[in-house]
Design a protein around this nucleic acid. Structure first.
Lengths: 103, 103
DNA sequence: CAGTTATATTTCCGTCAAGTTATGTAATGA
DNA sequence: TCATTACATAACTTGACGGAAATATAACTG
């Protein structure tokens, strides 16, 4: 219940859905085709993504259009920020300064 | 097996461990104190982090020192990159251009 | 060597996530 | 109204994960 953002993103099919929604809004049926999951399976993931604020939906007749809402991903970006210096070559010196031992 | 990086990061205690290792290398005992987990629990998480390439360890007598290896997190950063424009205010126009409907 | 410290591994258990099938609901169309 | 389309929800099964407890291993200490 109320899974954290990382848990939401840990599921590969959910990332596939998000990636697909970057290009354009999609119906559930389209996403089913993209994920090779059953329709209920996709709906389940969409619910989790909706509850995480990562997608929103609007109804167009029977079709439900899902749209990417990437704002929550800024939290991941903020978590990641302090780690970024570690993999940037220019700051290897900093990394070695913060630690001392060699493996 | 071989859980993907997002799965590894989904576990809160593992993120706690990584965050702690940003400051300095730590022994298992220190990490036990920081996570309120049992020692075997921490060792289990450390194994997963090691297999993901996110930490390395070196032995100093009985003590095992764990060190952050943040390089794999660059993959998360790369996954995140295409989403970044969506939450940057300056690019709201781009976002509206890529989609059309309103929720 | 015996005991202690520090950590890893094993075993077991409860929980929960993810998938499927079945069913419900809403809108369209003949 | 009845059938069909599109999707959501419910019910159920299964497998993996996270945790603790017990045990193993390795190094230091007296």
């Amino acid at each position: 219940m109320i899974p954290n953002l990382f848990e939401v993103l840990a599921e590969p099919n959910r990332r596939t859905i998000l990636d697909a929604l970057r290009a354009k809004d999609r119906t559930v049926g389209e996403l089913v085709a993209l994920t090779s999951l059953s329709q209920p399976g996709v709906s389940k993931h969409l619910r989790i993504l909706r509850e995480a604020g990562l997608v929103s939906s609007s109804k167009d007749a029977q079709k439900h259009l899902y749209r990417l809402r990437a704002e929550p991903l800024a939290d991941v970006d903020r978590w990641l920020a302090p780690y970024r210096p570690y993999w940037l070559d220019k700051l290897d010196a900093l990394e070695r300064h913060l630690n001392e031992e060699e493996s």
